[in-house]
Write a protein that binds this DNA or RNA. Sequence first.
DNA 1: AATAAATACGGGTTTTTTCCCCTTGCCTGT
DNA 2: ACAGGCAAGGGGAAAAAACCCGTATTTATT
Lengths: 243, 243
Amino acid sequence: MTEFAVITHLFVSMVFLERNVHSANLVNLTGMKITVGITDDQSLFVKSLTLLINSFEHFTVVLQATNGEQLLEELAKTEPKPDLLLMDVNMPEKDGIEAARIIRDLYPQCKIVALSVRDDDTTVINMFKSGCSAYLLKDVNPDELERALNEVYTTGLYNGDASNINYRRLLKSVETAPQITDREKEFLLLAGSDLTYKQIATRMHLSPRTIDGYREALFEKLNVQSRVGMILEAVRRQLISIN
Amino acid sequence: MTEFAVITHLFVSMVFLERNVHSANLVNLTGMKITVGITDDQSLFVKSLTLLINSFEHFTVVLQATNGEQLLEELAKTEPKPDLLLMDVNMPEKDGIEAARIIRDLYPQCKIVALSVRDDDTTVINMFKSGCSAYLLKDVNPDELERALNEVYTTGLYNGDASNINYRRLLKSVETAPQITDREKEFLLLAGSDLTYKQIATRMHLSPRTIDGYREALFEKLNVQSRVGMILEAVRRQLISIN
DNA sequence: AATAAATACGGGTTTTTTCCCCTTGCCTGT
DNA sequence: ACAGGCAAGGGGAAAAAACCCGTATTTATT
């Protein structure tokens, strides 16, 4: 999916939002339940959410996993494939973004609904780029979750409302957000530890001056003035994680 | 609760663990359900966990909240008080540790079961100090959760098993863990932002030298060599949070 | 073919951090 | 009453981080 397609997608989303178009419930005409897979690193959440979704009129949970890797394994042996995949963004082993990308290519019939604690612009963008159809925050109420699942199944898209993701702000940040490169992420990973830049240079087989270049670029891109600020901002944007 | 009492508590826990004593199910002799309150910052988790716990034979959820402040409000108007309170440790407004302390004093009849993503020694210790009766990780399976709730209700204590908190390691860390003072935490809060020590000194109305003293003390206590390391370790130990 | 962006490197300067060494007073628990 | 922890302050020096000035090559996009 290109950058342009994402923006288009979001524009379409906004139009839906503004016209207040709510598709009629086309589900359950056949009496068949819509099948759902759940992936989250907290197994207790997976299991309790399963009960909640099974309590929805048209839905049944057919797959559970606690990380991206496991999700792909389960997905391979699940037949037929689930209609919807509800997945957490930050998981160990294989995170939501990677997993979504693979699923989009392998099983395009499965619509992906991202579920996250964090209303972080770049993460949302990355999830949409990786092929997810909706992005919900974990503080949605069950009613809205059900509405979202319904709408993603019928229209292939869901926008949330004022209480959820702010697509307008998002769209703005897509245009202005600078990209962080792979090499910069490698650097960030090492910068987010108890090492000096000189030590980082050695580990990356680079000169200290090159490292300083990355630092400078990232200060600019993340809009910070110190290494501590850089690391904290990187953690907030899910570029790295503490551990 | 004194440090000694905590250690004693943990010792008792370990003895229970080692003897593999499982109390007979004394619950439900009267046919009454055990009442449970749930607090977690993710409302979706609260609502789905409610379904799970209501599906347990002897339990019924009578209170829901999404932060410590709200929990206390709800608790004030709930009558009779819930037998058990399942609560997250890290929440906005009022975190699990503060909330637990207040509840222990105001409503000692409510047994507190802490629920957290993080197996962090000092946090576990602090929760026990604040009066919680059990500490479960969020990756417990429903069976173990039910067993834990039963055991806390009947014996006032639960230890988890190998898959959960490692009490042996915990006990060791209680003995060796240095205490971080309030003033040091204040400093950490500011150090965990895009400020220089000089700026922090101004904000805390202290001389830069004094700030340097805090820095030095914390490097020692947290066993790190740099400001970045200090902040990351502080985040890991839940002394501060990124935001 | 040209522009842009990512990658890599160099020298020099200033500011900040880190690391030693130190004193004083105040409060709390034993 | 006194030990120990805490708050507050300090000098001097070395190391690291941050901020300037640049250059060159490759790769992708237009």
